[in-house]
């Protein structure tokens, strides 16, 4: 059970940050979920020689320990690669606060315990400003009440019920859905033969 996410928030105001930027393809040639922390935002964090880019927010104090990102519009667009979310989790990111997220990224995040609170443009602006303050302190995301708090600042966020439940319970969707085998069998029984795909081997 995880009802609250607390920590340092880093501002990443760029719009349309795509999953190619979150996890460049050279890190995708793998058959496991592990070892993706170094690849996460690799081209933003490191230069072509592999040296740390000192100007990038996650390379600066105090944001090196950030576990929350305040992001620009349409974050996570592009490729369906779940590696982007696995990598962010392995880098220690627990939540991204933004105005809109691409659909596949949103679903991938939920499966991996990455919270994506959706806020208004105004709240996004306020939080970007708060997060940019090196002495800004921690912010807190309450999943149950759908509220973000930072000092005196308080704002609501949107999150659908199913995602909220999944994040708080930390459940395994596959195992949960297998509790509905009877319903799945009943659905299949209603399908005519011409609606049952059988791929030629």
């Amino acid at each position: 059970m995880k009802k609250t996410i607390k920590g340092i928030a880093a501002p990443l105001s760029l719009a349309n940050v795509d999953t190619d930027v979150i996890m460049p393809k050279r890190f995708l040639i793998t058959i496991t979920r592990e070892g993706l922390a170094d690849g996460t935002f690799a081209d933003l964090r490191f230069d072509n020689e592999g040296e740390v880019r000192p100007d990038f927010i996650l390379n600066k104090q105090p944001w090196t320990t950030a576990n929350i990102l305040v992001v620009g519009d349409n974050f996570g667009c592009g490729s369906s690669r779940e590696h982007a979310v696995w990598g962010m989790r392995q880098l220690g990111i627990d939540a991204c606060i933004g105005t809109s997220f691409a659909g596949i990224f949103y679903d991938n995040a939920r499966k991996n315990g990455l919270a994506l609170p959706i806020v208004s443009s105004e709240t996004q602006g306020d939080l970007l400003q708060l997060a940019s303050d090196a002495n800004g302190g921690e912010i807190s995301i309450d999943l149950e009440t759908r509220t973000i708090t930072a000092g005196d600042f308080k704002a609501p966020f949107e999150m659908d019920d199913a995602t909220q439940t999944a994040l708080i319970r930390g459940r395994d969707d596959t195992m949960d859905s297998l509790e509905y085998v009877d319903a799945i069998r009943a659905f299949e029984a209603r399908l005519s033969d011409t609606m049952r795909v059988s791929v030629i081997r």
Binding site: D107, N108, T174
Partner: peptide
């Protein structure tokens, strides 16, 4: 529609997906 790898697992195991109407 596109899905992530966890959902690929879900389809393999159940032939279904958890879905929210758009």
């Amino acid at each position: 529609f596109g899905i992530g790898t966890s959902e690929v697992e879900h389809v393999l195991a159940t032939q279904t997906l958890r879905y929210k109407r758009m």
